[in-house]
Design a protein around this nucleic acid. Structure first.
Length: 280
DNA sequence: AATTGCCTCAACCGCAATTTT
DNA sequence: CAAAATTGCGGTTGAGGCAAT
């Protein structure tokens, strides 16, 4: 008990990574694949803790990462998913395979939170100016639902998780798998050298022991890890919850709105969710 | 041109979950 | 089975960049 943090070890370097360190890390991962992080510092000679290596890889170096410039569509998805799942950034990121949880978290904290606060204030103002009279259901759904919905959405996400777990090799899972594979293939076009390295490593048939480290080593949503934050099931999942019958009207509505509001090509991730809700 | 304040985002920290010994 | 080690996640921090003064 009381194990000291790995980064407290003497001689462990902290702070921003240098290009040289990046190259060392990437070439090591190209050779051995992501995972087994504890051996990375010793085998590479990097004066970094394993945690730092993993973080650098998953948040910056791994293939398929899109950086900056969140599209309105991505923004919308984050807002909806945050309302739906709460601050489960890793789960949210699994619906946006090109984005890291850290990126999403940062974007939420720096942009979206403010945006939502502002719009909420605006809503409040217009509401009070209407002398607290009835509102249209549309605005209520988007704003007011956030609080009441936030408490009930956990159940909804659990249901989704439960369903996914119950259908280990569903058409949806296949769809997603295919989708992710396409993602990877398409991304080769604008890959950085690092990304190409990783791609070639994967084509060589290597697979990491842990498969949800990122897009490069497989998408977070696969038939194996589908059904929770982790590949063996979510933190919150248990059999009792699996049998619950949560309300679905809001998510269905949301999915419908999202789908109709956006051009089809951009909405493949959402159509996955749509498919889910239909099957439910 | 210099200073100040704000914003962004990469990286760290602490904790919980999971795996290994 | 318990303890130790490792991994993953979410919250937070702080350095650097940029705009305003």
């Amino acid at each position: 008990m009381g194990r000291p943090p790995c980064c407290d070890k003497i001689g462990i370097k902290k702070g921003p990574w240098t290009p040289e360190e990046d190259i060392i890390l990437v070439s090591y991962i190209q050779e051995h694949g992501p995972g087994n992080w504890r051996s990375v510092p010793t085998n590479t000679g990097l004066m970094r803790c394993s945690k730092s290596c993993r973080l650098r890889w998953t948040n910056y170096l791994r293939p398929g990462i899109k950086r900056g410039n969140f599209t309105p569509h991505e923004e919308g998805m984050i807002i909806h998913l945050q309302a739906l799942l709460g601050n489960k950034w890793a789960s949210i990121a699994s619906y946006l395979p090109q984005r890291t949880d850290n990126d999403i978290k940062n974007y939420w904290n720096t942009h979206l939170k403010k945006k939502l606060n502002k719009s909420e204030c605006d809503q409040e103002r217009s509401r009070s100016s209407e002398n607290m009279t009835l509102q249209t259901s549309a605005t209520r759904n988007t704003i007011n639902h956030r609080s009441t919905y936030a408490s009930s959405t956990e159940n909804i996400s659990r249901l989704l998780e439960g369903w996914m777990r119950a259908s280990p090799k569903s058409s949806t899972a296949n769809f997603l798998e295919q989708k992710m594979q396409n993602h990877q293939t398409n991304n080769l076009m604008d890959q950085s050298p690092y990304e190409q390295l990783q791609g070639s490593w994967e084509e060589a048939g290597h697979h990491s022991k842990r498969s949800n480290g990122g897009l490069g080593d497989g998408p977070k949503i696969t038939e194996n890890n589908i059904g929770g934050d982790h590949e063996d099931g979510g933190d919150d999942y248990d059999e009792e919850e699996h049998n619950a019958t949560p309300p679905l009207t809001f998510i269905e509505k949301w999915l419908l709105e999202e789908t109709s509001a956006t051009a089809g090509g951009q909405m493949e991730e959402m159509s996955h969710l749509m498919e889910l809700s239909n099957m439910l």
